[in-house]
């Protein structure tokens, strides 16, 4: 039997395709096996329909109040301190009113207020632009409202960083490990080339603990379920005037700021 080049290529191509399908099918068959095992939420986990955070600014009085909160978070999550603004990574940080509430500034505000730092973190938006733009679902929305980041799947395209209107996302421009002074052995680090941010401490919530920053804030940060009318967040929000950053963009931020108002001092 003679065959020309074209025919040979056709047959070779089909054979290759067949091999590929066979290999895929056998892989699928062998990967099954366990029938009785399953996955369940951890018993004792804190759950909510919509997690939210309230920043009570009057509770942040000294520089140490901010530092303690930031350190609690960054130390637990092995957030590196690279020491230059270009490669910087931060999950929770501070800035002043005119930078936090852009467009709301007013030159006649009290001087002390103008300089007062505001704690900043991921807003875990209801309608998160970062989730919308991610091409691999590496950043995604959990049922409880947390905007989660899957470092295993992130391809490092940084579309989410362009999309976030709050500057909440950091990219690992280089290997973070040499810049972590004391490592927390119970939590992983990240690797170069992935994006990271605050996760509302999902791993602690699932153990029944509050987020690290909340634990360290002495009541300056209140965390709870926005859908539960009896939760503490709902209570403080119903009693105080609160603001959200850039709510006009329709992102639905879940971090609320109570700025003085009824409280004794700012």
């Amino acid at each position: 039997m003679s065959m020309d080049r074209r025919e040979f290529l056709k047959i070779a191509g089909l054979a290759g395709l067949g091999l590929g399908i066979g290999a895929g099918a056998s892989g699928w068959i062998f990967s099954r096996g366990l029938e009785a095992s399953d996955f369940i939420p951890s018993p004792g986990a804190l759950t909510a329909k919509r997690w939210a955070m309230v920043v009570v600014l009057s509770k942040f009085k000294t520089e140490d109040d901010y530092k303690r909160v930031i350190k609690a978070c960054h130390k637990f999550h092995n957030v590196p301190d690279i020491g230059n603004p270009k490669d910087e990574i931060k999950w929770i940080w501070t800035d002043t009113y005119e930078h936090v509430f852009v467009g709301q500034e007013n030159e006649y505000l009290p001087e002390a207020f103008k300089e007062k730092p505001f704690p900043l973190l991921c807003n875990h938006c209801t309608n998160a632009p970062c989730v919308r733009v991610c091409p691999t679902k590496a950043t995604f929305k959990r049922k409880d409202g947390i905007t989660m980041q899957d470092y295993h799947r992130c391809i490092g395209c940084r579309f989410c960083m362009a999309a976030c209107p709050y500057g909440a996302r950091s990219f690992n421009w280089r290997d973070p490990r040499p810049f972590i002074k004391e490592t927390n052995p119970t939590f992983p680090t990240r690797t170069k080339g992935v994006v990271e941010k605050c996760t509302y401490c999902v791993e602690l919530l699932e153990k029944g603990e509050m987020p690290k920053c909340v634990q360290a804030s002495n009541g300056g940060l209140i965390f709870g379920d926005l859908q539960d009318p009896n939760s503490e967040v709902r209570k403080v929000l119903s009693e105080n005037f609160s603001m959200r950053r850039k709510a006009e963009l329709g992102t639905g931020p879940s971090v609320f700021y109570i700025i003085g108002g009824g409280e004794e001092d700012v």
Binding site: L34, A36, S37, F39, I40, P41, S42, M148, D150
Partner: peptide, 21 residues
């Protein structure tokens, strides 16, 4: 990470916290 199921129940019904580390 994605489904918030941090506990694994094995074939014998024993529970394990899901964590490589």
């Amino acid at each position: 990470l994605r489904e918030a199921n941090r506990t694994y129940r094995n074939e014998e019904g024993k529970l394990f916290e899901i964590s490589l580390q």
